[in-house]
Write a protein that binds this DNA or RNA. Structure first.
Lengths: 183, 183, 183, 183
DNA sequence: TATGAATGAGTCTTCATTCAT
DNA sequence: AATGAATGAAGACTCATTCAT
């Protein structure tokens, strides 16, 4: 019976990632509580979204921390990043979608920082000669989000096995980014 | 003054692909007609979304046709596909997220066909030895959608120049898919 | 193609008698013309209703005239009245329903006059000793309308044969009204 | 404050039986609740009408039960039926006119049963020699409804005293049905 | 604390009516 | 004269939120 904040957030993330217009009622029902109780946990819809966002950013930040982006070469760091991030793929997809939706509002500071850290990794890859220089860090960052989101969806739809996801994303991204040894 | 269905659909697409909750009133105003007239053109919100969906799929189908996926080698075909598809990126993103395309169990038949044609291209690339075989056609198809969506967003946000988009997506994707000549 | 006022009124009567909320669109379609044309024939919904009412009252008035209520004994006069009125039963039902609906508005003068003429017949029946005096003229008038309406419906539903209607109404009403010869 | 379904239905019945186009807003206000709350009690207008229909039929069924149609002679049974039914006259009129009771092909089963029970009473009257055989049970049933409706209206308009209504209907109907002792 | 009940605000939808051709 | 197109006004419906228990 005791459904705590975490549980609710988890359900909300799953639903809102799929459809940003999911109603409070649907979220409450999915979490097994009443609408009124949902409102007691979170002051309102905006507060729920915000909490979700913050939780997601926190999770993502931890994943990025664990990936130790500054250590070793950029290729290894990117592999670690994908490995750590992939479990949170759905949440990450939600975050990037949300940011798209909140065109007007300011973007969360924590998110901007993560964005910057990931961009920095790609920049390091450029500088150290590991990554092609014709693909900008900004684009590679977006592409990473896009591939992770696509991967989460593909798994959800049963088109890709969960165990293959890490490999699928990393190989696709790295294969492209890695300066090919051709010639 | 004569605002026809096409005009209205175009405006609706522009608005709804940016914000799925755009109201009928906003759409009507953007199209320069009254809400009642909008309802004369499309029986209701659902009908409008459906029409949009069909138009989008039709546009996408034409783009795929123009790409002549069966001609030449798979690499060239994929480049053409990206080139032709990229202008419809926003619509593609809309189709694959906020609408009922994948809901209610009934996936649009036209969409399934397109999906199949694109998968076939990746399969051809495998068979002809151009693409890595450890990345499945299904995954590559999803990844393509993901990258196109990410690209549209990156352009929208000013992180990638519109003129670079085609190159950015194609190089990233192909670089990864192409069997590297390393060693 | 040339659908004239009469035709339209006839269709409108048929529909509105059945359901007072029938829309202008339904009426127009039933009459085989466009909504706009319907509005050219009749200034608006109220005007249509009014025209219908007036036509109905005119028809009813002619029927009452033909019944020569003042001639012969009251029983014969009532038989004639029913005989003449019955073909217009649906319209009569519409009229009494309409008057019920227009609680606020004033009742049509023509209708009041007809009401008065019919009441007078029942009063004559009382005075001449043909009708029971415990049933007031006002009630008998309402009862006559009620039975004619019920008869129209019963015929429409196939529960009474059109040819039996006249007899069914007259016998039921007269059998009751006629001072019984019992004792 | 606690306005329950029953209360709401009662108000709705009062309003809708007088004017079939009464808006949800008016009904809600009459019941002392908001439109939204009205929609919580009844999923929509159709649901409200349907509930009303069912309640009306249930009330009418109880009245018919109380009349014990099978007991005593048919004349007494019919008198009891009129006495019990008359208080529900407005609802009866509503049921038989403005609603979907007879539309969409699906006549309410409960209603059909009541119709059958009343018809059976008239048939018994025929078989036991109390009622004229030239007036069919089906017609007499319709006539009964018509007279009750006319009576309700006559009372509403002040043309018949409420206390006289029972007598007025019963005498008119029975006087006609009863095999006259004439000759 | 948890929730059924209630609701204000806002959106969707329909209708009678008008207008331009 | 007839009609397809357009619309303001009004009603139906939904949602996030609050309240009383």
């Amino acid at each position: 019976m005791a459904v705590d904040r975490e549980q609710v957030l988890k359900e909300a993330a799953a639903l809102l990632t799929r459809r940003a217009t999911t109603s409070m009622d649907e979220i409450a029902r999915a979490a097994g509580i009443s609408r009124a109780t949902l409102h007691r946990h979170f002051a309102g819809r905006d507060a729920l979204i915000k909490a979700l966002e913050e939780q997601g950013i926190a999770q993502f930040a931890q994943a990025v921390d664990r990936a130790r982006l500054a250590e070793g070469d950029a290729v290894g760091a990117l592999r670690r990043l994908i490995g750590e991030t992939e479990p949170h793929a759905a949440m990450l997809a939600f975050l990037s979608t949300e940011n798209q939706l909140f065109e007007g509002g300011e973007i969360n500071a924590g998110w901007l920082e993560l964005d910057a850290r990931i961009s920095a990794l790609f920049r390091r890859g450029h500088e150290e000669g590991d990554f092609r220089i014709d693909l900008s860090p900004a684009w590679l960052t977006e592409a990473l989000y896009g591939l992770i989101g696509a991967g989460a969806w593909a798994v959800h739809e049963g088109r890709v096995a969960r165990n293959d996801l890490n490999h699928s994303i990393a190989e696709l991204l790295l294969g492209g980014i890695r300066r090919s040894m051709e010639k």
